[in-house]
Design a protein around this nucleic acid. Sequence first.
DNA 1: TTGAAAGCGCTAACAA
DNA 2: TTGTTAGCGCTTTCAA
Lengths: 336, 336
Amino acid sequence: MSIAEVARLAGVSTATVSRALSGRGHVSAAARERVVAAARELGYVVSQAASSLASGRTRNVGIVLPYLGRWYFSSVLEGAQMQLMHAGYDVTLYNLAGNDAERRIVFEDFLLRQRVDAVIAVALELTEAEVANLHAIGKPIVGVGGPIEGVRTLMIDDVAVARLATEHLIGLDHRRIGLIGGDRASDADFHMPAKRLRGWHAALHDAGIEADPRLMAQADFTLQGGYAAAKQLFGAPRHERPTAVFAASDEMAFGAILAARDLGLSVPDDVSIVGIDDHDMAEFFGLTTVAQFPRQQGARAVDVLMAQLQPDDATAEDTPLPFELRVRRSTARPRP
Amino acid sequence: MSIAEVARLAGVSTATVSRALSGRGHVSAAARERVVAAARELGYVVSQAASSLASGRTRNVGIVLPYLGRWYFSSVLEGAQMQLMHAGYDVTLYNLAGNDAERRIVFEDFLLRQRVDAVIAVALELTEAEVANLHAIGKPIVGVGGPIEGVRTLMIDDVAVARLATEHLIGLDHRRIGLIGGDRASDADFHMPAKRLRGWHAALHDAGIEADPRLMAQADFTLQGGYAAAKQLFGAPRHERPTAVFAASDEMAFGAILAARDLGLSVPDDVSIVGIDDHDMAEFFGLTTVAQFPRQQGARAVDVLMAQLQPDDATAEDTPLPFELRVRRSTARPRP
DNA sequence: TTGAAAGCGCTAACAA
DNA sequence: TTGTTAGCGCTTTCAA
């Protein structure tokens, strides 16, 4: 089943079939109609391989991410994939699984095989060499969730987000505000935890509150990690205990809510808790949080990419992504 | 950077380069060495498009799944992707997002573009037409997590798994054993919920216990859904309340644990709870569960596929996948 | 074991 | 607007 048979059936040349089906170049309405009819009748579908070889375009985008199982990553992926699919693009998935060996294979081998037109890197800091390799073969890159040197990137302002969450607590008259931040491992790739810590710090500072190091705990962005960290914070003697905690992700905040409960502390009467993300389960837990919108972030990354793939690319600046405070049941004024 | 330049530098023909690099056909050790050296020196990587066009092989496998965000699916995907990567294969991801329109596009368009050598369908029931289309273009299919007519499939024995979970409760002397099963929507694609219900039923029957319809609740396989369903069950007057509940997935079981807690019921003193999956958070919740191993299921699906891609395929039977009871803190004898 | 050469199926310049 | 045709870069048959 090749383009030649369609051409024969439609009574035109293969070039016309190609033009009619791909939408590139001019074809009379009549010819287009016959071609489409013939293609449908024969059940013809272009061979991507042949098309790619001839045109240099693959209609395929690589998406690289460090994990699959976490809400943020799978949501970005979902958003990007939908959008790409509607643009007729395939998605090739490269999951690094937090693993250096895999990473090398992906960047030194898979991505260079000319199978993708572009790559989207999610919450990944690429090395100069990685970026250079990709640029060398003319593949545009778009980053989501963290800045990459010399690459168009979509990200929320993590400092501002953390500041907003913390200021919400300050606005409720909390003074002893704890932090559940990222641990060293989770910071390695992106410094996002460091930024969220900075936002917390800045908000306190502006309110004239001194950051108490005993109120800072670290975790790995999982619910379990958040639980353990929160137990440490909440387990302190009463006058040292925070009346509120800012967790750098919703999953950790969920853990903190459960920890409070297990200690017999009421949320929000004894402790207020705020997170970042607006995870699917935030509503269920009644968690006050700063929403980011990962599905939209993924879709938006695709839009940016499509623009870059156009010859007349009027690449705009890096835009900060929207975020939004969602107040639910987990925060309130401290009990006097 | 094409094969011709490598050939020139190595002082051999392009045919020899191709053979040396792909491992197909015989090449003298000396020639291979020179080719490999030349390729490395030039930074040569094959063009997949050209290779595919010439050989008909794409070194690319499509993975189709109904959702991305749930633990089971993303775990299977992760397992399959790792395994494929190590075999030098790319993964093209088709996420249906529980959406019929997407599904049609995927099956009538994307998968037929000859971009994949095979497809793995996760927890999906394919229609006869969908299978036929794929077979017509010679693409092998492997199913994971549910039977597909005429297709090699890897799945756990859902009836047996549910029976095991329920028999664990019976063995602890529970008699009033509730069920949190799937709702109609979640059953549509795979009848997995129906099978797990059957297992529960069969275990009760064999123990001479009559299944009480008031002890059956339905949910959508989410934590929230499990919570709501469990509240219904646990909210019943004391003598009608189940002393134990079997939830058809761990996420629903987590919800049930939280529901019990919110009602002031102790797990396992007042109610025992058992799930299916061995979710990453099962340990954290102390949940007794029947483990299945989705990462391994994904990897295994790849092995089966690779075998089918060999000409000398000695396709074995459908093998039932392993599962295993993991007893933790959420189950105990009922309080007298 | 190696090389020559004929495609694989499509796209895009160019000519008409 | 349409057709002719020369590749795109590789694999594989066939012959040596």
